[in-house]
Every structure is written in structure tokens, then in C-alpha cells.
Amino acid sequence: MQRVNMIMAESPGLITICLLGYLLSAECTVFLDHENANKILNRPKRYNSGKLEEFVQGNLERECMEEKCSFEEAREVFENTERTTEFWKQYVDGDQCESNPCLNGGSCKDDINSYECWCPFGFEGKNCELDVTCNIKNGRCEQFCKNSADNKVVCSCTEGYRLAENQKSCEPAVPFPCGRVSVSQTSKLTRAETVFPDVDYVNSTEAETILDNITQSTQSFNDFTRVVGGEDAKPGQFPWQVVLNGKVDAFCGGSIVNEKWIVTAAHCVETGVKITVVAGEHNIEETEHTEQKRNVIRIIPHHNYNAAINKYNHDIALLELDEPLVLNSYVTPICIADKEYTNIFLKFGSGYVSGWGRVFHKGRSALVLQYLRVPLVDRATCLRSTKFTIYNNMFCAGFHEGGRDSCQGDSGGPHVTEVEGTSFLTGIISWGEECAMKGKYGIYTKVSRYVNWIKEKTKLT
């Protein structure tokens, strides 16, 4: 034993070699072989497995989906700052455009905790909710729209109204504003409101030439003092309507412009014939205590009207009353817009006519005020429907199939267009061939041609 100890002390290297040989010859039971080890760690190889990531292109799944990435790591994937920024906006807080917040056709661009709407022409605001041009839906104005110097929408209202708090709607500024039905039992019968379409306001006024200088022999019209197929109006439903009495009662109609003036057809009036105007009328054979009678003290036909040349060209006249009318729910003026808007309103496509005229061709006159909704007829169809001249200051309205029309005794009465609950004068009943005849239409004086003249002559002093 002493000898062994001496050998170990003198030859430590020998001992180490012996131990190493023993270990190498022993069977290893701690580690699995290569094949079995792979069965336990069965993990798919990654895209760049075996390579240094710093030297390969980034992978979106590896960089940002398996674990949260930084902007720089995302930049490695896209290799483009702009594309990385677009991805980053949604990656950080989701897609803010998912709810489609942009209105009126706006395009949404996502941002971090926010979004941006790219608005089409005519709109602005956070969600493109603000109209900035009158060309689109009248700028959301209830009545009139004008573009300011910086191309912003400025709404306005006709006389007797003021802008509401929203700067879009119009509200009454006087007790009985024009064009409004205020009798409670008839307010439910107000005709369907007309909503502004998209309009090209630059070209809204037709490029028409008034044929002022045409000389033409007097034409022989049949029954051209021209509501057939209409309905009984309720008291106060058309408070701007008046009836004219002269040699015979209810020979023509008219509309209240203001307390002192009536507008009617020029062919209705004769110099030297006494005319009485009755406002607030409903049943011409009954006294309903809503009527107001006034005498006409002055007749002003349009300066281009000449019955000797043509009885229905420039067929418009103004009547001055001896005493002002007292405005109330049964006696209310009709609204008159400017030339541009009167023309736009007419193009809405349908209007209402009213009167006490004959209820059928050569038949009896109506006792109760009649009204009828009539569609506008395109000019080409209008011209083809008659052998008589249709001037540019006239328009056609009615039904091709016949059966409904204005008729004798309705002449001078109103053709009105309702705009968001307020009625505007767009025409004056003038003439036609018979009444409600198939293929024939009622012919009306186009008020847009005469609004400046009306307003100039009827100013209240």
C-alpha cells in the first residue's frame, strides 16, 4: 500500500490518463441519441435557420407576430419608411378606419389613436360632414345658397324668414311668412316636400332668348283662358290664391305678392273693366268669414305684352289694390325667389296649380277651390304637342294621358313649387288646347323671366 501511494504521488498524470480511459469505455446513459432527441424537440425550422439574422431580410411573422416588435424591426421587413409607417399605425392600436367614419364618399386613412378623412370636392370637416359648395344638395341650405369668396357655403332665406341657429334652416321672422300653410287642420295635408338634388348652379339658368321682337298675326285659340281631375282644397291650404270678379264672377285667378299687390295673367284683364279681388276665398257660393274683398285701382301688364300681336306672350300683369290686405292664416303671400332659384325650383319637376275653373272641358265651374299636382314636361315634348308657338318664356306641365289639367277660369292662378315646406311661385296658368285632352298640356308663363320686374313694381313704400 505504501508503494502504491508513492507511485500516485510521483505520477499524477498517469492516474488522470487511467481515469479518462475508464470513462470513455463506459456506456453513456444520461444523453439520448440524435434521433430520439429530435422526437422530443420537434420544432419547425425557421426561415433563416442556421444563418445569422443580421444578414437576412426581415420576416413579418418572425419579427412582429411571434413577439412584439419595434418600429426598427418592422422597418427591416418593409425596407421602406412609408410602408412601415402605414403598417405601424394599425399594428400599434388597430384600424381606426374600420367603422368607416368618413361621410359623403370620403376616404379614410388610419393613424395612431386617430384617423384622417380625405374629402371629395365640396366637403370638409373631420368626417367630411361639412358642405362647402352650393353645387351639392344646395349646400344643405333649406332655401338659398351662395358661395363666399373663400368658396364656403353661405345660406340665406327669402323675405319674412331668418336663418336658424344651425345656419342652414329657415324659420319665420314674421307672423305670416310667405308660402307657408298655417291653418292647423290643413298642415297635415301639406304636399310632399321637395329635397334639393345635386345641381350645376353655374349652368342652372337656361341660355334662352326671349323672342321679344317676333311679330306674329293673332292666333285663334280655343278655350285658351284655361282644375280638371283635381281635388277639393281645404280652407287655408292655398292662402296665396285669390279669385278675380268682373263682368262675371271667378273669371280668373291670381296670387298675393304682398298686402297691396296681386300677380295674374295679362290676358285676364281689360282696361276700363272694374275688377274686384277676393282673398281668403274657399267656396265661392258661401260666406265663410275668411274672405277679404278689395278693388283694383291700377293694372300693370308687362311692358312687352301686346294682345294685338299675341294674347299669351309675356302673359303676366300686376294688380294694385285700393287697401292693403290683412295677412292671416287664410290670406298669405306666395314666396318669389330670384331668377336663378325660381328656375331651379321649376326644374324640380312638379308643381301645384289651383283655381275655381271648370271641372271638365266646357263644363261647370268649381264651387270649392280645386288643386292638382302636375309634372313638368320637357321642352321637346311640349313643342311636338301643339302647332302653336311655345315661346321661351312659357313652359308645359300636365299629363300625356289627359284627364287632369287646369281649365277655363283658372287662368292667372299660381303654379307653385314647394321647397322644404315653403311654396314659391314658378308659373302662372296661361293657356292650353281644350282641357285635359290626351297628348295636350297646360301652358304656363315662366315666372323666372319676370321676377325682377315683379319685385321692382310691387315694392311697398
Rank of each mutant, 00 (worst) to 15 (best):
S423Q: 08
G439C: 05
Y115P: 02
C155F: 00
H415D: 01
A317C: 05
G421F: 04
I275N: 03
G125L: 00
H302V: 02
V277T: 03
G349R: 06
Y115N: 02
T445Q: 05
N452S: 14
T218N: 13
Q216K: 06
D93A: 04
V326G: 05
G122Y: 03
H267A: 04
G179A: 01
N135F: 05
E281T: 13
I316W: 00
N313M: 09
R364S: 14
F176K: 04
E66Y: 04
E193K: 10
S329W: 06
F424G: 00
L460P: 12
C396G: 00
N295H: 12
S107L: 05
C141V: 00
L19M: 07
L23Q: 03
L52H: 15
K188L: 07
V359K: 14
P375N: 14
S99C: 08
P120F: 03
V419C: 04
T386H: 10
S107I: 03
R294I: 02
R298Q: 08
F176Y: 11
L14F: 12
I429N: 15
Q167W: 08
V257H: 00
S148W: 06
S423D: 03
P177C: 03
C69V: 03
K440C: 09
Q241R: 07
A265K: 00
H361V: 12
L460S: 08
G402I: 13
P197E: 07
I454G: 00
D95H: 08
L52V: 06
E79K: 09
A192P: 05
N393M: 03
F71D: 15
A337R: 01
N258A: 04
G409V: 07
F345S: 01
E116R: 04
L23C: 06
V30I: 13
R46W: 08
P12R: 09
R62W: 03
R46L: 10
S49M: 11
S107N: 11
A9V: 09
L60H: 15
T445R: 02
N313Y: 11
G421D: 06
V243P: 00
G439T: 10
T290N: 11
Y91I: 14
I309M: 12
G432Q: 08
S411E: 12
I299Q: 09
V269N: 00
A366L: 10
V277M: 03
N304A: 09
V227C: 08
G403D: 15
K457H: 14
Y312F: 12
H289G: 13
S448H: 09
N59L: 04
D338W: 03
R226P: 08
F87L: 07
S184H: 11
Y91A: 15
K455R: 11
T461L: 09
E27D: 12
R449W: 10
E86H: 15
E286R: 10
S11W: 07
F87Y: 15
V153D: 03
V419Q: 05
R404E: 06
L32G: 15
W240R: 02
D33W: 07
N80C: 04
L20G: 02
I275V: 10
R3L: 13
D111T: 05
T461V: 12
I300Y: 06
N222M: 11
H303Y: 12
E193T: 08
S385E: 06
K274C: 04
T271M: 11
F78L: 14
C155R: 02
K51V: 07
K311Y: 05
A308Q: 14
E323M: 13
S11L: 13
T386C: 07
I334E: 01
I428K: 02
Q143F: 03
G229L: 09
V242A: 04
I316S: 01
T16N: 04
N127R: 07
Y201G: 14
N283R: 10
C170A: 01
L372S: 13
I7H: 14
V273E: 13
P239A: 03
V154N: 06
S184E: 11
T386V: 07
P101N: 03
S184Y: 11
T194G: 12
F123N: 03
R46A: 15
L425D: 01
H415R: 00
F348K: 08
N310V: 03
E456F: 09
A279Q: 00
D93R: 06
E73F: 06
C28L: 02
S365C: 04
N5E: 07
D110K: 06
T194Y: 13
C155Y: 00
E10V: 14
H34P: 11
S385C: 09
G442L: 07
T225S: 08
E286F: 10
N328C: 03
N283I: 08
R191F: 08
T84S: 08
E340G: 08
A192I: 08
K293W: 10
G58E: 04
G351A: 10
K438V: 09
C97R: 01
V326K: 10
L41S: 15
A207I: 12
S354V: 11
S11Y: 07
G122T: 03
C155S: 00
T445I: 06
V77K: 14
G58I: 11
G351Q: 03
V248P: 08
I262W: 01
G94P: 12
N222R: 13
G94V: 10
S70M: 10
I256S: 01
N151T: 10
D212H: 10
K293D: 03
S385N: 11
L327P: 04
C102E: 00
K45E: 15
V353Y: 04
Q57M: 06
W240P: 00
Q408V: 06
T85V: 07
Y91C: 04
Y305E: 01
E35F: 08
T84A: 12
S184R: 09
V242D: 00
P324W: 02
E456W: 07
D410Y: 07
